[in-house]
Amino acid sequence: MSKPVVATTSLAGCFGCHMSLLDIDERILELIELVEFNKSPIDDIKTFTKHCDIGLIEGGCCNSENIHVLKDFRKNCTILVSLGECAIMGGLPALRNGIPVEECIREAYLDGPTVGLNKEQILPNDDELPMILDKVYPCHEIVKIDYYLPGCAPRADLIWNALIALVTGDELKLPYEVVKFD
């Protein structure tokens, strides 16, 4: 039997969840014996080359590209897992949800204290750039998500336990210390 295939991506996230995945330390050697990675920043495969069994999603959806990638993952993965607070509830990017988009963009490019010289008052507006959404959406409000691993970042042991449970079919172990929201 071929190895289960795993894909990962970071949408509106900080890559902290991917860092936490790497925090499994030497168990990563065990992991690559158990699974094969496809589209993922970890191996730098940019597009799906085959159907995947597990898709790990870091980050929520803050722009049109996030939605596109998330839908692509849903199409190409049997099981989708929301990894971390941003994927589950929008996380820190969703702090902007109470602020109108225009105000956010003005603060970022024109009025903010850390903005350098922008004499022409240019706001990013190129067809190549993804459109910013009205607010940041949790992944499960865009596509169906099968499992959720909370944490900021999710503890390495939680990610490890969950992956092993998914791959082996054994019951997921959830000690108190591994399920945290921060």
């Binding site: 820190l92 499960h140 998500i145 108190y176 399920v179 929201f181």
Partner: peptide, 26 residues
Amino acid sequence: NHFCPACEKSGNCELQALGYRYQMMV
């Protein structure tokens, strides 16, 4: 707006603690 990662009460919050106790994943 319970942004646990950005909340100063995180770790000492009773709502969060009940979320942990009941293993609320989402």
